[in-house]
Nucleic acid binder design. Sequence first.
DNA 1: ACCTGAACACCGTTCAAGT
DNA 2: ACCTGAACACCGTTCAAGT
Lengths: 198, 198
Amino acid sequence: MLGAMAHRPYHHGDLRAALLGCAEDALAEQGPDALSLRDLARRAGVSHAAPGRHFRGKDHLLDTLALTGFERLDTRLGEAAAEPGDPRSRLLALARGYVGFALDHPALLELMYARKHTPSRPEELTAAVGRLVETVLRPVTEGQDEGTIAPGDPGTIALTVAATLHGLTSYADADSLRELQEDLPAVVDLLLSGLLPR
Amino acid sequence: MLGAMAHRPYHHGDLRAALLGCAEDALAEQGPDALSLRDLARRAGVSHAAPGRHFRGKDHLLDTLALTGFERLDTRLGEAAAEPGDPRSRLLALARGYVGFALDHPALLELMYARKHTPSRPEELTAAVGRLVETVLRPVTEGQDEGTIAPGDPGTIALTVAATLHGLTSYADADSLRELQEDLPAVVDLLLSGLLPR
DNA sequence: ACCTGAACACCGTTCAAGT
DNA sequence: ACCTGAACACCGTTCAAGT
């Protein structure tokens, strides 16, 4: 691993992507508060000023990383939602996908929803959240067309489902996430049948 | 306001509480990343080393602030859950209380659930989350005793309700929180009746 | 075009010393 | 008991200069 490029070239191959990868590693290892640009530069083997060439600042780098997280989660949920089946199995696949992502990338998921109330938050992140809700919305409207999902504003339904999935991961630490992954059928049935007695 | 204590005494009256208050202000004004201990000390009118007397470090101060947030939210939800009425009105009161807290203290609520995946997270915060779920759990078991809430593991039901409420605030920015507050009846009815057609 | 090295203003934390 | 002031090691960002 070392001998292949003993003295790194002056121009890093793709410093931008390398920095994002290092940032994701550092996030998982040390948490978001301990992450520093200078440390990322050291990990990537460049000077501390080099990241400034590729990102406007620390916020920009973290926002970009969060955006890649939304893209990956959206892809995963889109695949789960596209699977054929009744509403229960599709909702369960959606829930398993979300909790699975939380298990695989806990710190990244936290970053994705963090710094919500900072004025500098870019519109791109808000749009990414909207796309996620849309991914959940598609199976909802399809179910309504088939008559397997109750009528009502599909936006409200999709938002509630997405919020529940995200809220579950917020309430769980690493251990309880693993338990939750197993107990998801009960949660899904609760969402499907409701809290009132039938 | 100034004349009353033109030159502040050497011993601050209650620096610990003052720092927590300043921290909450700074959090709301600048967001969590911009918050610095030295700035808090300046706001409180003490030297930059003074906070070290009352908090083990920045994390300790923020964790303490988050804990006060959980206590206030728990009190608010406890009052909402204790109101008499049918399950729908009580769940609506609970939801209004949660979203109202998010409207009043958006940055504080974010802090409360942040840094979930750092090893240093104190057990006290995990316990506070547990108490919150317990506050939601009480009306659930009462409703089950009356037969107005469907049978099933009350812990799962309470966790799902709490997760949904929290997730909703995670998906909403300041503007959509205000809209959400008005649309809560639809969300509550969805939780009560479920996603399946009746 | 891309990176370095020095510089600047900040920060968290510690610790002797002051009151 | 509580606070200060100096000190240390770090950080984000900028900018001339190098290749």
